[in-house]
């Protein structure tokens, strides 16, 4: 299991979502993606998208208006 990190601080929607999409495509099933964002719409659109893809996901608000999203890739591309 590999751990990947994405720093999306100061980046507006939908860049965090697109970055996650690109990164997840390169990851294997079981790998963990940790992303940091301070855009509250990422909490909505990243999570909606991740849910639809069937990955496991959780997030916490680490500071005022700052979140960490944890995504475990479940489906493999192959």
């Amino acid at each position: 299991m590999k751990e990947e990190f994405l720093d999306c601080l100061y980046e507006p929607c939908p860049i965090p979502l697109l970055k996650a999409l690109k990164k997840l495509n390169k990851m294997k099933a079981g790998d963990l993606l940790i992303m940091k964002t301070d855009h509250n719409c990422s909490i909505t659109n990243v999570i909606e998208w991740v849910d639809k893809q069937g990955h496991k996901m959780d997030y916490i608000e680490v500071g005022k208006g700052e979140w960490e999203i944890y995504i475990e890739k479940v489906v493999s591309d192959g």
């Binding site: 601080l9 100061y10 980046e11 301070d38 509250n40 005022k64 208006g65 700052e66």
Partner: peptide, 18 residues
Amino acid sequence: SVLISSEFKWRRIKNPKQ
């Protein structure tokens, strides 16, 4: 709205490209 939900934050510029 951001003050009430305590999500107010000054955002820095990430890079010149932005």
